[in-house]
Nucleic acid binder design. Structure first.
Lengths: 244, 244
DNA sequence: CGGACTTTGTGCATTCATTCACAATCGACG
DNA sequence: CGTCGATTGTGAATGAATGCACAAAGTCCG
């Protein structure tokens, strides 16, 4: 383990990430899994584990171990053959790859149930993110305390973005208000947006929008559930047909 | 997702499941996009649009039109050349493919902010799903009304699953309680689980678990945001180096 | 009825992702 | 110091997904 000897002076200042960290870039599929690995690593660290083999880490992340190793190999060569990976060091390296060695200032728009759930999400948001403000258009919510911040009125959006140098906006408002909020975020210069509203946002090029949809996964579950019961049915009829 | 190997004979031979309903099955990537199309179609229908071309539908779903057409072609041939797709009919066909022509009985475990957000999600959950119960372990929440159901104590889980024939369980409890709730769901025979807790659930084969993670997408955003700023920096240093 | 125009559905080439399988490399131990 | 068992990192094989480009198939209009 023992510190980042191979990347001297790269962590302190954000601007100092000069040495192109990841030569050919990291595949999207890998990036999408890194947070899962990171979480599994934190869990291991909390259990006092200091070293882990790809096999075990893969199991706790729910992936195949070859995939895990290939994913990690895109970040560099941080394992020790015959031993495994140093948990603490790997936490650092994965965090660095994801850009979580700095804390990104975030604004959450919408203090409904979802906004509140996020503001209280604690654990993971606190590593790598700082919720600078939670906004809502409902005056009766303004002034209420959520997590560690106080709900402000949505009219303050532009001022707060400028004041805190907000880099990431989270949209947790009803679908009807989402596009307008998105437009305002973009107009103020925010280029990373996380959308919880159930619609596709329209943004100019250069803006990165990702979405989290509470119902899509449920619908995918329904698909598989249906497939299973259909399979049972087909199997039964086939058996019946075979007996006839 | 872990749903292979459970119904031997149906998956093994292509000829078995093969014909009805969807020859050769629908690719996972397509299934994941169907809910997005469905939503776009509902939005069009509400605006009074009766017919839509792949180009326009693709735009409102945020995908490439060739991909949209190929996706839809897996469900059947429901378009009219020279015209487009009938919105209402396509809504039906996509719903059918996803298994949303029936309403799946769902139980939500956890009546915190997230559970509440789900119970009030209304719109989409009402098409294809029926929330039969919301459970919590906190006695002070029991009896409260959420959406259209009353919060019950989590000790009633098994009885409610049996009574309502629950097919899908949603886990919206803190990470520490999630695995235990999952085990209880599985023990009662629930084979479709949607997990909002930030950990990887352990389930026996034949159980389909999907997860929605509020923080993973945020971490992916951070990655891209970092990449952008690093790119700017590298670009600047390269220019400076070229001048020297 | 025929030709111009529109849009679907899909074969094909290409890119991206997964998985296998094993040589290279490490720590441990006698 | 050499051998042994363990584990990584990665070439190569396979499989999945994407996007292009166009023939097939429809509408519409004169």
């Amino acid at each position: 383990m023992s510190s980042a000897a191979e990347f001297p002076g790269s962590e302190a200042e954000p601007g100092n990430l000069a040495d192109r960290p990841y030569p050919g870039g990291i595949p999207d599929a890998t990036v999408a899994r890194l947070p899962v690995y990171l979480r599994a690593l934190y869990a291991l660290a909390e259990r006092g584990v200091t070293t882990v083999a790809s096999d075990e880490l893969a199991r706790s992340a729910g992936v195949n171990s070859a995939k895990l190793r290939k994913d990690l190999s895109h970040l560099g060569s941080y394992g020790i053959r015959g031993v495994g990976y140093d948990v603490e060091y790997l936490v650092y390296q994965v965090s660095r790859a994801l850009g979580l060695t700095q804390r990104w200032p975030v604004v959450i728009i919408g203090a409904g149930n979802l906004g509140r759930a996020l503001a209280n999400y604690g654990g993971f948001l606190n590593r790598g993110f700082r919720i600078e403000a939670v906004l809502d258009s409902d005056p009766s919510l303004v002034g209420r305390k959520l997590g560690s911040v106080i709900v402000r009125h949505v009219s303050e959006l532009e001022a707060l973005v400028a004041e805190h140098g907000i880099a990431i906006g989270v949209i947790a408002v009803p679908a009807g208000a989402a596009q307008a909020m998105c437009d305002r975020l973009v107009a103020t210069g925010v280029t990373s947006i996380l959308n919880f509203a159930p619609l596709v946002l329209n943004v100019p090029g250069g803006v990165d929008v990702r979405k989290v949809d509470l119902s899509i996964e449920l619908q995918i579950l329904a698909f598989h559930a249906q497939r299973r019961s259909t399979a049972r049915f087909v199997q039964a009829t086939d058996r019946a047909a075979a007996e006839a």
